[in-house]
Design a protein around this nucleic acid. Structure first.
Lengths: 226, 226
DNA sequence: TGTTATGTGGCACGGAGTGCCGTTAGAGTG
DNA sequence: CACTCTAACGGCACTCCGTGCCACATAACA
């Protein structure tokens, strides 16, 4: 049975194999000949499938180099959904952010190749920006639902969501720029966690209480000196 | 002289007129018949120009409904470039953010139409996300240059840039959702300015420690006076 | 050994975006 | 007024993306 004929009536493993072949072919061709000079026919031919099959695995040419963002979004939603009600919101946000790291850190090699491509090809940059936008929206939505009773909860949710995603991407870019070694993943995570001190999740210190303590101290002093 | 023939050898005013006609035709057709069911030929025909001319005014079909983001980016860069060195960074950031409001608030009617379209058509949503990404990148770049000597300056810059853009967009969306009345622009600006208290630009003063020091000073004074 | 379900490739089509070129209005010059 | 030059326009042809349709092959199943 030849390789081509074995690809008819494919099983689940066969489908995953075709998808991997298409991603590999796309990344290699984009890197070697450039994104614009690579047609979908080229990718499909390099992967040994028909052009029509490419569009059954990917919504478009740009998606052939994207990691599985749907999975990342689903994991974030799961962290928020399964979090214990008493867990501080800051802790939940950090756990959700760190969950996404695994999608990149699990395969540093292709992550590096994708990073180089995405930062070179405008079409892929815009695609990535759209995906970041979806991550940010998800964080903001989940946070807004939990900050409904806080003053300016919507604004806090929007700012926090954007900040978390920005910190995540910054840590990831820094890790990839440093070579994306498997040993640097913990430093990457630590760098991301520093965002915890920059989020407007907790109320500012209660200045009213501070003022009362000062007033009490002043009154005490007043009594003594009079 | 017919309208069509008068459009040959156009002057600067003629070019601006054609651009306006194309934007109007695009917005109207997208709203009436949907984005996907409107071809570039339809837009060009409705504006009374040839299809080829459309692509001389816009890079692509999606750009026909976009405001002039290049101008907005240029204004932000100008605010940062011309800011006095002694002006607090927070003030510069807020001024830069408010500058962009004018681009939308100057024409509330088309802003509302665009808002409805952008939030309905996936292609336009992604386009907008890419533009937001560019705004965020610009803020982050300018901030990083001014936070080079601060601890975790890169992270602070990334978080602050993302937060400012998010707050800006949130205020804008809120204003548009409320009808986009001309009178609500000041409330929109005020809402945006609330982000000032949520940015990790300055170290937050540890008020708890301040209170303890004051209490200690008071007690010390108390002992002296007794 | 049929039968059905599923994945596949080929074909054709509409639309986006681009390069090229002839045409034409308007501006400048004598 | 006559001429030239410049710049914008329209049309044509082309490549490629993405999709609907259909015939076909394979695997699982009865």
């Amino acid at each position: 049975m030849s390789n081509v004929t074995s690809r008819r009536g494919r099983s689940a493993e066969g489908r995953a194999e075709v998808r991997r072949d298409l991603v590999t072919a796309a990344v290699d061709l984009f890197t070697a000949r450039g994104y614009d000079d690579t047609t979908v026919d080229d990718i499909a031919a390099a992967a040994g499938v028909g052009r029509r099959t490419f569009f059954r695995y990917f919504k478009g040419k740009e998606d052939a180099v994207s990691p599985d963002h749907e999975l990342g979004l689903a994991r974030i939603a799961e962290v928020f959904a399964t979090a214990h009600p008493t867990e501080p919101l800051l802790s939940v946000v950090l756990r959700a952010g760190e969950t996404v790291f695994d999608l990149y850190l699990s395969d540093p090699g292709t992550a590096r190749k994708r990073f180089a491509l995405v930062h070179e090809v405008p079409a892929l940059r815009d695609r990535e920006a759209a995906m970041v936008h979806r991550y940010r929206r998800l964080f903001t939505k989940e946070l807004a639902a939990r900050l409904a009773d806080v003053e300016d909860g919507d604004l806090r949710a929007a700012v926090t969501g954007a900040a978390v995603v920005a910190a995540h991407n910054q840590a990831l870019r820094r890790w990839l720029a440093d070579g994306g070694t498997a040993g640097g993943t913990e430093a990457c995570r630590a760098h991301f966690r520093k965002v915890a001190g920059m989020l407007p999740l907790e109320q500012a210190p209660d200045l009213e209480q501070v003022a009362r303590r000062l007033e009490r101290a002043a009154r005490s002093l007043e009594r003594r000196t009079s």
